[in-house]
């Protein structure tokens, strides 16, 4: 079936078998976990040794956990959008599992981006929350995530749920540029004259390297969690199927 496709595509289809995926996950998760811990150790060490920023003082340390969280929040949604395409276009059996597994993770990262952004903004601007373009866009992204999670939980029938969640994810994805554009527009309309953007400082290597390492750590963490969550979802479906069959078959199932 996949002769004409690139080897990586056929490998994706090899993984369509849940059992094979579970075996792969069992092997990958420990490796990713170790890599995550190592990256966090390196990133935190480099970050905490960074000097104070000229403008932002030591609060630049918050950047090392704010920017990766925001970056992951968006990367996670992109992954969900690709998985949604997998559900709708290619009908890959594990695509829906991927979306469901990723949504709570994305929401968590978005939440972290907001909280750390707020804690970064308070010493900078004196208020706990500021409706600047980026924080506002991240807040809207959080609402989108939570809506998808709520929708996934509300629909009982698995294939309808998969389709609906995929559609909403993709419609959200299409809208994100529009929302971003409109929020930026809105922000430039209302921005007072002398506000400095909540932006990373001039990217000296001494700030850039810890940031990159922390971003790598967060990314590895995400993929570790994503595989764990996908594994849990597959097992959950197995349990559900077995329960249904046990209820339907009654004692006949034992006889065979």
């Amino acid at each position: 079936m996949s002769d004409a496709a690139a080897p990586s595509a056929s490998r994706l289809w090899d993984l369509a078998n849940p059992t094979r995926f579970l075996n792969l996950a069992a092997r990958l998760i420990p490796i990713l976990a170790v890599a995550t811990i190592a990256a966090f150790a390196a990133g935190l060490y480099m970050g905490l040794r960074a000097p104070e920023d000229y403008q932002q003082g030591s609060t630049v340390l918050i950047m090392f956990i704010h920017v990766p969280a925001a970056w992951l929040a968006m990367m996670c949604y992109s992954l969900m959008a690709v998985s949604a395409l997998g559900t709708l276009v290619w009908r890959h059996p594990l695509a829906d599992v991927s979306v469901r597994a990723a949504a709570p993770l994305g929401a968590a990262f978005t939440f972290l981006a907001l909280v750390t952004g707020s804690l970064w903004g308070k010493p900078m601007w004196g208020t706990w929350w500021v409706w600047d373009a980026r924080l506002t866009s991240v807040l809207v992204l959080l609402i989108i995530y939570l809506g998808i999670i709520a929708l996934a939980r509300a629909i009982e029938e698995p294939s309808t749920a998969a389709r609906s969640v995929a559609v909403v994810t993709l419609v959200g994805f299409i809208n994100i540029p529009i929302i971003k554009f409109s929020v930026d527009w809105w922000n430039t309309l209302h921005q007072p004259a002398s506000v400095s953007r909540l932006a990373p400082p001039a990217m000296d290597a001494v700030f850039l390297y810890p940031l990159l390492v922390m971003s790598a750590a967060y990314t590895l963490f995400f993929f570790t969690c994503h595989l764990m969550a996908m594994r849990n979802e597959i097992l959950r479906r197995r349990v559900r199927t077995m329960r249904i069959q046990a209820a339907a078959g009654g004692s006949a199932a034992d006889v065979r």
Partner: peptide, 12 residues
């Protein structure tokens, strides 16, 4: 800024 940095890291 410890009052901001520490909570940020702890919450994360």
């Amino acid at each position: 800024y410890a009052g901001f940095i520490v909570p940020a890291y702890v919450i994360s």
